[in-house]
Every structure is written in structure tokens, then in C-alpha cells.
Design a protein around this nucleic acid. Structure first.
Length: 806
RNA sequence: GCAGCCGUGGCGGAACUGGUAUACGCGCAAGACUAAGGAUCUUGUGGGAGAUUUCCCGUGCAGGUUCAAGUCCUGUCGGCUGCACCA
């Protein structure tokens, strides 16, 4: 066949290679070193994919194919996170059972995912709603329960009084119910909690061993929020109760002039005196009604006096005990000692309610102070007005005061975390049933492992109940069961798990997806895990990624896995925006890949999405730009198709260009600056096209160019490979190697500057001695230097000469 | 408010450890081939003067360090993201 007559007919080509790869997959050699490249799996929403979704899938697929060419067996699976609120709400809205909705959406999703031509191994496909999968989600919970990590607790939840339904924080954001617009309140409900706080220190410390973006590590560290300080007991004047506070500033204890408790604090009732009872109760009531969001939006300090006083353990002063909503019940001990001289919030509160302000830290040793300060002094300094501690630097004072309190037996040095235990239950239908049974005689009994999975019953009404209980509570047949311990009548737990449950461990299951006797076999775990590269959105920087790390550490502790961190390396791609907003179907600014594929092909769309901009940053979608990469693919096609049957023996210039090409593409690939890899392909294709026109092109250059581009544009690469007469798969090739010495040019351009300003360029042999280069440089600017006093000559090898004149 | 990231042509963006700013692409302009072009190819394209071979200015703004700054430092303005009364 005369290759010159063949046009770049992407439709035929792409279909041909898809069929070929379906019949003969390219990534099957499990004896190679493994590389596990994982995408965050989607929940199948029914809206379908837009090009914004493509971005992360294209990035991970390029990486996967690159690793394949580097000689790895690549684990590159895909699945569906099908449980959870989005699927349930979609189902309720459309009146379709979630099971059916999810199944239908999955089919659409899978078809659209196939359009990307990512080399997913669909034999590993999983869905969190598959009983064979959630059996193990439940199994993990049972292990956690047995290890004492799961416990029950009454928790205040967002509650919409109109819809009579528990709202997720997200659904209650902005102070109104997402569904009906009513103002949500709080309702106490019994919840299952997971003690993630037991792992706080490890979750923080092990961040060090991760090759993750610093940004994400910092977000996790801030979320865990470790701080050093002291717990101090304050005696209540004339009563037996003690109030414990946490402070990071024990050095300011002498400056504590009042105390504040969170409205929800357990001692509020006891400490409130008769004459204050009415207004305290009203304040507590009002604070409870406010959603967290509203409570944070408040700027003015509010509060009420309880009528009781505490005693400052060092100064002996009487401290009024107030309550205020600026103290959070769930941070520290829910009570604080207030040092208005050195804490801005305490300062504002003291000003408003006329409470005393004492300076105990001074910026210098003399202890000068402002008679009427307008703000708290939070800087460094020395202790003053602090008895025996006067003159001590504040930093030393923290330690000294804490030691003194420990000695007195009324305080201890302590570490505090912002991280709180995880509310793990949901009052929803569409989730994994929590595998526990409540027996009047035996208490809470876990479902025996042999009885797992506890199947989610199929029901017609899966809408939330108006009592706040899960819809499962209405199914008597299902709820009533026998106690596994005593055999007596018992009731099933009706709460379900959050969507996070399945996504916290799914990465383990892909490599042993059909195992019905274990979560994962030891052999598969040792061979294929952990994940080498995890690609997904930054929106999961904290919750999802923290939960997975927690699960992994737990599974390590009980011996299921032999590693402590699930994802060695992490990459967060940016969003694709259009019209200044994140692309989404609901905003009407989504761009469907379908039309673009029809018009330009999958390869062109893959390249264009990468070409848009740096993968880690947000980019703006531009409808026109894809023409550019489409033209490039045509150029590439012509370069190979027109020269494949008339290649010439390589010259030194061919070799130089080829090594430079491999170097450019490889280094940019390693840095994952994929937008510059694509521009690199354009540059080098242009260069090779010029060479081909001038004196022909050698076979090796074409060969290497095709292999390099194969991970990016797999179809055209495979077709051009065939045009070059190759009968084996291009994906069986090795990523080309470069030799730095061979890519050096024989002549180089040296820039000649005078006082740092560019004046001339000279061409000179790369190996010319320094003196020759200086002489040539001097000659090139001789007229300019005439009569000038050259005080210095700067020589940068291979780059420039700069004459400094006065 | 605090923390992190980012400000480069008409547009998206290049520029590795300071060393030719604007690679690559879009758009635009002119030309070629055409009956025709919304196909393809070639050339040009930061701004301002002089206009053959030249000079000045130019990476948000103001300073600084350096022979040399988009890159480093200080301050400032603007944008994005995260956290948000964390004791």
C-alpha cells in the first residue's frame, strides 16, 4: 500500500485499535515489577461525564502507560462509589429505586469512561454496593468494634424541622435546608462513632513519609491540629466542682481574670445560681438553635454570667464564670481560662462586659505597659505581675508554670488535638447496614463474621423517616432477629454507614476482587500494594484521604496489610472552568466529550486536555484550542506516513535532535508538567519535519517519536507504528533512553552582553576554549567597547559573556 | 483574620540551579494553491520611536541585592484555595 495516500482518518484508526486491544490486552505481564496507578473512583451520578472529569482520568492513564513502557505491570483499575447521599437523593428526586438508578448510571459511566481509552482492567471492576464488596466493609467495622474503636454517643445533628430529616453539614450550609429552605436546628440522636483520635499522633507523624503535595500534607496537619499546653483545674468558690481548662499559654495564668464555659458544658446547670437561671437557660437555648454556620458568622461577643466564681490557683483572685458561644464544646475541655491582656477574643469579651484586664507579659523586661490597651498583646515577651515568675521569658514560663502546677497536683502538661472522633452512622437507606445487633440481655453484639454480609433489604420506601431514624427501622421483618450470643429476640442496628466507608479501603480490593474468604489475600497484598500513585481532586485533601490513612493503619494493626500508608504518591489535578465557574451539568457550562470525539477523535481530546495548562492548576476551557492539537496530529501523521518508506541513515544532526527530543520529553514527563510535554511533541515534530524536508529523516527518530507519544495518543501511535512496518505492539516497546553527551550541539550560541544588556549573539564551536570565546565576544562588540573602560568580564560557560564597563 | 498558591502579549501558557523573556498553541494579518475555502501550506505578529544592518521601554506596583532579576529579598495591591472565635 502506498502510505502517502493514507489520510489521518482518526475514526477508523481509533475503532480499529480499540478492537485490537480488547482482543489482545497490552498490559498482562504480571511478572514485571508492579506499578499501581489509581484514580479516585466516581459515584455514578446519571449526569454523565464532561471534559472536566476527563482531566484526572487522562493524567492517570498517561502515567499508567508511561510506566508500562518503562517495564512495569500496571494496575490501573476503575470502579464505582455507588452508596451515599448523592445517589440516594438522585433516586428520591426521580422516583427510581437507588439500586436501579445506580445500575443504569454505571452503564452510562462505563461507556463514557471507555471513550477515554484509558487502559483500565475491567476484570477488577468493583462497586461499593455489591454485597460481595460490602461484606468486607462490614467486616472491617466489626473488627473495629471488637478492638474498641466503635462506640455509641448522643450527638447533636443538623435537623430540618420541615422535612423532618437529618441534614449533612453540606445540606445545611448557609443556614438553610438545601431541600426546602427552612432553617435547620439541632437534634440529639444516638450515633456510632469511630475513635480516629486514637490515631491522631500517627496520622500526623507519618505525613513525613509521604510523597504528597506539601499543600495537602499541611491541610491534614492543620486538621489534626496538634498543640502543646496544659490542663489546669480551677476550684469553684464555695463548691466542690472543679473546672478543667486547656491552655496553650500557661505562662499567662496570673492574667486569667474570668472563665468562660461553652453553653453545652456539663457544669453549666450546676454552676448557675438561682437569680441567673432564667437568662442562662435562654442563652443556652438560643445557642442550641443556631447552626454551626450561623454561630461562626457572628462577630459580636455575647455571653451571660452564671453567678458562680472560680479561684485562680496562682493569684488567688476570684474569677467570674460566664458562658459564651465563642467557646466550643468539642475543642479542648469546652471551658477556658480568660486572659484578656493577651488573647484578642478574651479582650473583646472583657471590654464588652467590663471585666478586669491584667497585663502579665511585657515586650521588654522593664514591664512597661499601656494603661488603656486597645487590643490584646499576643507577642513574645517576659512575665510580669506573676509572682515568683516575674522576669522569665514567656517561652520558658510555659514550661515553668506547667511544672509548678504539676507539682501542686492541679494541672498537667498535655497535648491537644483539633481532630475529633468520626460520626460514622447515617439515618439513611442507601448505605451499608451497620452489622450490629441490640439484645436486651447481652447488649450490643456484632453480627458473626459467618453471617456477613448483612444484606441491605430491598424496600419500596427508602425515604427518610420523620423520627430521624433510618428507613430501615420501619421494616419489622428485617429489624427483628435473634441475638447471636443468647439466641433470644433482638433488634438489628438500623443506621447505615457513610459513603466514606467503602471508599476508605476500596483500593485494596481491586487486586483480589473475587476473593470471598478474605478481604484480600496475603499474596495479592504483598505483590500489588500499596498504591504507587493516586490521582484525584484536591477536594478530598482532608476527609477522604485522612479516612483512608486511618483505615490503613487500623488494618496494619490487625495484620491485614503490611504497610502503614495507602498511597505513596499523590497528585491533585486542578479543575476545568468555563465561563468562570467549575464545569458542571447543573450550571449548564459542561462540555460533553462526545461531540469533540466525533469531530477530532479521542487522541486529540486527550492531548488538548493536557495542553490546556499545568495539570495541578485550574484552567479555563477554550472551545477553539483543540484545533491546534488536531493540526498537530495531522502534521505528525504526515511526517511519519510520508517518510516511513524512504528513511535515510542517521547523521550526527539526526542523532543530536533525537537525543534532545527524548531528553526533553522524559524530563518533562518525570516532572509531570504534561502541558509542556505536549508542546514538546509539537516542537520536535516541527523540527523533524524540517529535517525531513531538507535531507530526509532517519528511521530511529520516527521510531522514538512514536514510542514517546504512545502514552498520550495511543491510537495514532499504534497506527503509525504499523505504517513503519512494525508488527509487534508499540506498547511492548521500552521508553527510549537518551545520552546527554550525544544531545550536545556542536556549535553553540553565546550571548554577548554589556552591563547586562544583550548586544550580540555569536555562534562558536561548543568545545572552543574560554580565551577564544572571549576574543570572539570582544570582537563582536568591538565598536561599542571602543574607548570604554572594561572593569570586569563575566564568563558563563556555554551561555554568555558580559562586559562590565564604567 | 490566619495560612498556602498565583499575577508574564489580544488569549491559554513556556522560561531547569538568577544568564537571549514571551517556547508551543489559539487568535489575527499578508501571501500561495484553488471555481471556491470555514481545508492545507508559507511568512509575520509584546509596546513605542527611527524605519536597510538602530535605539528605548517591557513579566501587577514600589524599592533592594547582583555584572545580570519573571526567577532572590522587603513592602504593597489584586486574585484563587483552605481553615475560620482552636483557648
Amino acid at each position: 500500500m502506498n502510505t502517502k495516500d493514507r489520510k489521518y482518518n482518526f475514526r477508523t484508526i481509533e475503532q480499529k485499535w480499540r478492537d485490537t486491544w480488547k482482543a489482545a490486552p497490552i498490559n498482562t505481564d504480571k511478572d514485571r515489577p508492579k506499578f499501581y496507578c489509581l484514580d479516585m473512583f466516581p459515584y455514578p451520578s446519571g449526569d454523565g461525564l464532561h471534559v472536566g472529569h476527563w482531566r484526572s482520568y487522562v493524567i492517570s492513564d498517561v502515567l499508567a502507560r508511561y510506566k508500562l513502557l518503562q517495564g512495569h505491570y500496571v494496575i490501573h483499575p476503575m470502579g464505582f462509589d455507588s452508596f451515599g447521599l448523592p445517589a440516594e437523593n438522585f433516586a428520591i428526586e426521580h422516583g427510581i429505586h437507588p439500586e436501579k438508578a445506580v445500575a443504569e448510571s454505571s452503564v452510562i459511566f462505563k461507556r463514557q469512561l471507555e471513550d477515554i481509552c484509558a487502559m483500565y482492567d475491567w476484570d477488577m471492576e468493583l462497586s461499593t454496593t455489591d454485597p460481595a464488596f460490602y461484606k468486607w466493609t462490614q467486616w472491617i467495622f466489626v473488627q473495629m468494634y471488637k478492638e474498641g474503636l466503635a462506640y455509641e454517643k448522643e450527638m447533636p445533628l443538623n435537623w430540618c424541622p420541615a422535612c423532618k430529616v437529618v441534614l449533612a453539614n453540606e445540606e445545611a450550609a448557609g443556614g438553610e435546608c438545601e431541600r426546602c429552605g427552612a432553617q435547620p436546628g439541632k437534634k440529639n440522636l444516638r450515633q456510632w462513632m469511630l475513635k480516629i483520635t486514637n490515631y491522631a499522633e500517627r496520622l500526623l507523624a507519618d505525613l513525613d513519609m509521604l510523597n504528597w503535595p506539601d499543600k495537602v500534607k499541611k491541610m491534614q496537619a492543620d486538621w489534626i491540629g496538634k498543640s502543646y499546653g496544659a490542663k489546669i483545674d480551677f476550684a469553684v468558690d464555695g463548691r466542690d466542682e472543679k473546672i478543667q481548662v486547656f491552655t496553650t499559654r500557661p505562662d499567662t495564668l496570673y492574667g486569667a481574670t474570668f472563665m468562660v464555659l461553652a453553653p453545652e458544658h456539663g457544669l453549666v446547670k450546676a454552676l448557675t445560681t438561682e437569680e441567673n437561671r432564667e437568662k442562662v437557660e435562654k442563652y443556652v437555648q438560643d445557642a442550641g438553635v443556631l447552626s454551626n454556620v450561623d454561630r461562626m458568622a457572628k462577630k459580636d461577643k455575647t455571653g451571660v454570667f452564671t453567678g458562680s466564681c472560680a479561684i485562680n490557683p496562682l493569684s488567688g483572685e476570684r474569677l467570674e464564670i460566664w458562658i459564651s458561644d465563642y467557646v466550643l464544646a468539642d475543642y479542648g475541655t469546652g471551658a477556658i481560662m480568660c486572659v484578656p491582656g493577651h488573647d484578642q477574643r478574651d479582650f473583646e469579651f472583657a471590654k464588652k462586659f467590663g471585666l478586669p484586664i491584667i497585663q502579665v507579659i511585657a515586650p521588654d523586661k522593664c514591664g512597661r505597659h499601656d494603661a488603656a490597651p486597645t487590643e490584646a498583646y499576643t507577642g513574645d515577651g517576659f512575665m510580669v505581675n506573676s509572682g515568683n515568675f516575674n522576669g522569665l521569658p514567656a517561652e520558658e514560663g510555659k514550661e515553668a508554670v506547667a511544672n509548678h502546677l504539676e507539682h501542686l497536683g492541679i494541672g498537667e502538661k498535655t497535648v491537644n488535638y483539633k481532630l475529633r472522633d468520626w460520626v460514622f452512622s447515617r439515618q439513611r437507606y442507601w448505605g451499608e447496614p451497620i452489622p450490629l445487633i441490640h439484645c436486651e440481655k447481652c447488649g450490643v453484639v456484632p453480627v458473626p463474621e459467618s453471617d456477613l454480609p448483612v444484606m441491605l433489604p430491598h424496600v419500596d420506601s427508602y425515604k427518610p423517616t420523620d423520627t430521624g431514624e433510618s428507613p430501615l427501622a420501619l421494616i419489622a421483618d428485617w429489624v427483628n432477629t435473634k441475638c447471636p450470643a443468647c439466641g433470644g429476640g433482638a433488634k438489628r442496628e438500623t443506621n447505615t454507614m457513610p459513603q466514606w466507608a467503602g471508599s476508605s479501603w476500596y483500593f485494596l480490593r481491586y487486586v483480589d476482587v473475587n476473593n470471598d474468604s478474605e478481604l484480600i489475600s496475603r499474596a495479592a497484598m504483598e505483590k500489588f500494594l500499596p498504591v504507587d500513585y493516586y490521582v484525584g481532586g484536591i477536594e478530598h485533601a482532608v476527609l477522604h484521604l485522612l479516612y483512608v490513612r486511618f483505615y490503613t493503619k487500623f488494618l496494619y494493626d490487625i495484620g491485614v496489610v503490611n504497610f502503614q500508608e495507602p498511597f505513596t504518591q499523590l497528585f491533585n489535578q486542578g479543575m476545568i472552568n468555563r465561563f468562570g465557574m467549575k464545569m458542571s451539568k447543573s450550571k449548564g457550562n459542561g462540555v460533553s466529550p462526545d461531540e469533540l470525539i466525533t469531530k477530532y477523535g479521542c487522541d486529540a481530546l486527550r492531548l488538548y486536555i493536557l495542553f490546556l495548562g499545568p495539570p495541578e492548576l485550574d484552567v479555563d476551557w477554550n472551545d477553539n484550542g483543540i484545533e491546534g492539537v488536531f493540526r498537530f496530529l495531522n502534521k505528525l501523521w504526515r511526517l511519519v506516513a510520508e517518510n516511513a518508506d524512504k528513511t535515510v541513515p542517521p547523521t550526527a544532526a539526526h542523532e543530536q535532535a533525537r537525543h534532545k527530543m527524548i531528553y526533553d520529553i522524559s524530563t518533562r514527563m518525570e516532572n509531570l508538567t504534561l502541558n509542556t510535554v505536549v508542546s514538546g511533541f509539537m516542537e520536535h515534530t516541527n523540527k523533524l519535519t524540517d529535517m525531513a524536508r531538507q535531507g530526509g529523516i532517519d528511521a530511529q527518530s520516527l521510531n522514538d517519536l512514536i514510542v514517546l507519544i504512545a502514552p498520550f495518543a495511543p491510537h495514532i501511535a499504534a497506527e503509525l507504528w504499523e505504517i513503519c512496518g512494525r508488527t509487534t505492539s508499540v506498547f511492548g516497546e521500552k521508553w527510549p533512553m537518551y545520552d546527554k553527551e550525544k544531545m550536545a550541539e556542536s556549535t553553540i550560541t553565546v550571548v554577548v552582553q554589556i552591563n547586562g544588556k544583550l548586544r550580540e549573539n555569536i555562534q562558536i564551536a561548543a568545545d572552543a576554549p574560554k580565551d577564544d570565546i572571549l576574543a570572539a565576544a570582544r570582537a563582536s562588540v568591538a565598536t561599542r567597547l571602543d574607548g570604554q573602560n572594561v572593569v570586569k568580564e563575566i564568563f558563563v560557560p556555554g551561555k554568555l559573556v558580559n562586559f562590565v564597563v564604567k
